[in-house]
């Protein structure tokens, strides 16, 4: 009886009447369906509008293939660099105390607050013909902006914080007792990192890498500024989507876009799983 009345208080304290609950859930779901589900469905519906053959035809086009290749190269350079940076930064910030730590964290997050257009512009201002070292680069016949290196640089900039910002709070929460124990038992620094720290932050790394990769392959604004839009040369997949769309080649544009939408869905799946694993690991500690 006692328990029973307690339960009622909690219930009364924590929930709304059934009809309010149902109404709120319905409104929320309609909002999300309109804003999230509908666009997602539209991508695939437009892509397959003229059938599978036309869809595959659009993907097999040489310019599409070369844009896919460039996007893969960009991600292959960007992600490992930012992963290495993220792990190093998280080690320094989470395992040690030093003055200016909060400032450093804010600066690492900075690229997320900068407009993508500005992220591209800053490299044009340095490496472009009217830029700081542009004339020197031209004398030596080195192209950075409006070429592949510029695309990679801009992509590194916009995906800069992903791994670090995921690992810093995670490693802070895990403390450093385990590493200290390993060192006291005679492990070297690197052994400690690979055998003790790495297994603990594995899912955090996967989370950061998967988001970093999604943004690296999907970045549009920053890359658009530094690309130069040369077909088959400096077009990434998102830029190729833009070109096809502006040429009124909608089916092809959406076919290529559907590849990126697939990537987004896979990213969300892995991300959700990694999130769950990280949570589980933190609860076990």
């Amino acid at each position: 009886m006692q328990n029973n009345s307690n339960a009622t208080i909690t219930d009364r304290a924590q929930t709304e009447p059934a009809f309010v609950r149902r109404a709120l859930v319905t409104i929320a779901l309609i909002f999300l369906a309109l804003f999230l589900l509908l666009p997602l469905a539209a991508v695939f519906s437009q892509a397959f509008e003229k059938g599978l053959v036309v869809y595959l035809e659009a993907l097999k086009e040489p310019d599409t293939l070369s844009s896919i290749k460039l996007t893969l190269i960009t991600a292959a350079v960007t992600v490992p660099l930012n992963l290495f940076f993220g792990v190093t930064a998280a080690w320094a910030i989470a395992k040690f105390t030093f003055p200016g730590k909060n400032l450093l964290i804010t600066l690492i997050d900075l690229p997320f607050s900068v407009s993508p257009v500005i992220s591209g512009l800053i490299y044009v201002l340095i490496f472009g013909l009217q830029g700081w070292i542009g004339p020197w680069l031209q004398d030596h016949d080195i192209r950075i902006v409006f070429a592949v290196p510029g695309i990679i640089l801009a992509t590194i900039f916009v995906t800069f914080p992903f791994v670090a910002r995921e690992l810093i709070p995670l490693m802070e929460a895990q403390g450093k007792e385990e590493e200290e124990a390993a060192l006291v038992l005679g492990a070297t620094g690197l052994q400690t990192f690979f055998r003790v720290t790495l297994p603990n932050i594995k899912w955090g790394i996967i989370y950061g890498v998967i988001l970093c990769n999604a943004r690296a392959m999907g970045e549009f604004g920053a890359v658009s500024v530094v690309s130069g839009h040369i077909r088959g040369m400096t077009n990434t997949v998102p830029l190729h989507v833009e070109i096809l769309y502006n040429e009124y080649n909608y089916t092809a544009a959406f076919a290529v876009a559907s590849l990126l939408a697939f990537l987004a869905l896979i990213t969300l799946m892995i991300k959700t799983f990694a999130e769950w694993k990280v949570r589980q690991q933190l609860e076990n500690n």
């Binding site: 991508v43 999907g218 998102p238 989507v241 876009a257 990126l260 939408a261 990537l263």
Partner: peptide, 8 residues
């Protein structure tokens, strides 16, 4: 919206 490329 975080995962879907902005151009798409």
């Amino acid at each position: 919206p975080f995962a879907l490329p902005t151009a798409v």
